[in-house]
Nucleic acid binder design. Structure first.
Length: 425
RNA sequence: GGAGAGGUGGCAGAGUGGUCGAAUGCGCCGCACUCGAAAUGCGGUGUACGGGUAACCGUACCGUGGGUUCGAAUCCCACCCUCUCCGCCA
């Protein structure tokens, strides 16, 4: 959600910034609505003012027993009241129209976000680790996994495509990965562990930007709630409708939760394997902070996500997304892409975004700067630290041996109950 | 799911048709007193939108949405939430 004053102040700059994301110019249309709305609002307030004054006078007149004056005033108020409903409706209509326009617009890209229409314009900013040399042809996880307990067939049988049933060694490894990530984010990086609801209301889904435009990406319950596509929704909305104390910021949260995505529009993509599922687990990082802190918090969060890949010794590269490839809520996004030897490709495993005040406006989350009377919108950031399912994929592919077994990464051994190697059944 | 009670400012808590954005207490901020502090006294202390260079002015908001009325925190209707008891359940 944007501040309409931003558009009033410099409509050309606003349109130019959105043009970088391929959005058509909207300022002129919104400003016309805004000007009209304010005119109506002023007339409405004047009418209400006269009504209020007259009503007070009626009270005074009645108190004095001056019936004639009271009756005359009543007639005047009745006249004013005839005008009000139309003005109110007109104002509300235009207010809603403006809100709807603003609510559909994506965030403005930050100045240092590269130009570009899609992922081909993303810029690699760092690369870590050296892909391992294999003495044999590295297999894809979908070929190694089934013998180790990654059961695509059972998942499909009970739930359909894009569901997987994990058992035995792989289920244990999956859990070890998830808990290692969560513990690291809590113990090493200072994010507070949270266990949030997985079902949310419309308002929450609107707050982080899933609604109104991306409803088709979500699963909806029969009682009108939404399954979270990421715990970003629950964590970020935990501060909705609040005026936060400056001393509570920055607020850093993390959660390990399942995520549910309908993957509408992804038909045919990554249908094989564990890469793109309707249900997957993710450790999420969310930070709520003051505007001047958000750039530094963004770097901090990326580093927290990177630390997991480093600890697991998984080679990756860090991408700065181009204006056209970012999600709607982001001003600036880094993606971490892990090396998958089976696919011989880098694949997204984490996405870390600074949303500026875009979500804060939608959630109405503000804070009061020290010594200030005015409230200000907070900034929000979110990032995966990391996607557990895709990390499992990366471990299977990077740690595989020719016989189909998979070595357990050093940092996970303590959590594997003595298992040092996953061995095919 | 059944029965009952209740939702008012940062908190506690009054207010049942008019001058109530709302008493009072606590908290918080400022000032006075003091060498300093405590205590005490005085003043201030919600949010949003609109207008204005500003001081300031106006409008709306007492869970949410409707309604009655010249006028609603107060009356009526619906919904939401919280609490207590019972049932059920992990």
């Amino acid at each position: 959600m944007h501040d309409i004053r931003l558009i009033r102040d410099d409509p050309a700059a606003f349109d130019a910034a959105l043009a970088r994301r391929g959005v058509e110019a909207v300022s002129a249309r919104i400003l016309a609505l805004d000007e009209y709305r304010r005119g109506v609002a002023t007339r409405l307030q004047e009418a209400q003012n006269r009504r209020n004054e007259a009503s007070k006078s009626i009270g005074t007149a009645m108190g004095k027993g001056d019936k004639d004056t009271a009756e005359a005033l009543k007639a005047e108020v009745a006249q004013i009241k005839d005008l009000l409903p139309a003005l109110e409706a007109d104002e509300r209509q235009h207010d809603e129209a403006i809100r709807a326009e603003l609510a559909r617009l994506p965030n403005l890209p930050a100045a240092d976000v590269p130009e570009g229409a899609d992922e081909s314009d993303n810029v690699e900013v760092a690369r870590w680790g050296t892909p391992r040399e294999f003495a044999f042809t590295a297999k894809e996880h979908a070929d190694i996994g089934p013998a180790l307990g990654l059961d695509f067939e059972t998942g499909a049988a009970i739930s359909g495509a894009r569901f997987t049933f994990l058992r035995g060694q792989v289920a244990r490894l999956h859990r070890a990965l998830a808990q290692f990530m969560l513990d690291t984010q809590v113990d090493t990086h200072g994010y507070t562990e949270c266990a949030p609801p997985l079902l949310v209301k419309d308002d929450a889904a609107f707050g982080t930007g899933q609604l109104p435009k991306f409803a088709e990406d979500l699963f909806r319950t029969t009682d009108g709630r939404w399954l979270i596509p990421t715990s970003e929704v629950s964590l970020t909305n935990s501060v909705r409708e609040q005026i936060m104390g400056a001393d509570t910021l920055p607020l850093r949260m993390t959660a390990l939760t399942p995520c549910f995505r309908s993957e509408a529009g992804a038909a045919g993509r990554d249908t094989r394997g564990f890469i793109r599922q309707h249900q997957f687990e993710k450790v999420e990082l969310v930070t709520v902070c003051k505007p001047e802190e958000s750039a530094a918090e963004h770097e901090r969060m990326v580093a927290a996500a990177e630390s997991i890949l480093k600890a697991l010794e998984l080679p990756y590269r860090k991408m700065l997304l181009s204006a056209g490839d970012m999600g709607a809520s982001a001003r600036k996004t880094f993606d971490l892409e892990v090396w998958l030897p089976g696919q011989a490709a880098y694949r997204e495993i984490s996405s870390v975004s600074n949303c500026g005040d875009w979500q804060a406006r939608r959630m109405n989350t503000r804070f009061k700067p020290e010594g200030s009377k005015k409230t200000e919108f907070v900034h929000t950031l979110n990032g995966s630290g990391l996607a557990v399912g895709r990390t499992l994929v990366a471990v299977l592919e990077n740690y595989q041996d020719e016989d189909g077994s998979v070595r357990v990464p050093e940092v996970l051994k303590a959590r594997m109950g003595g298992i040092e190697r996953l061995v095919p059944a």
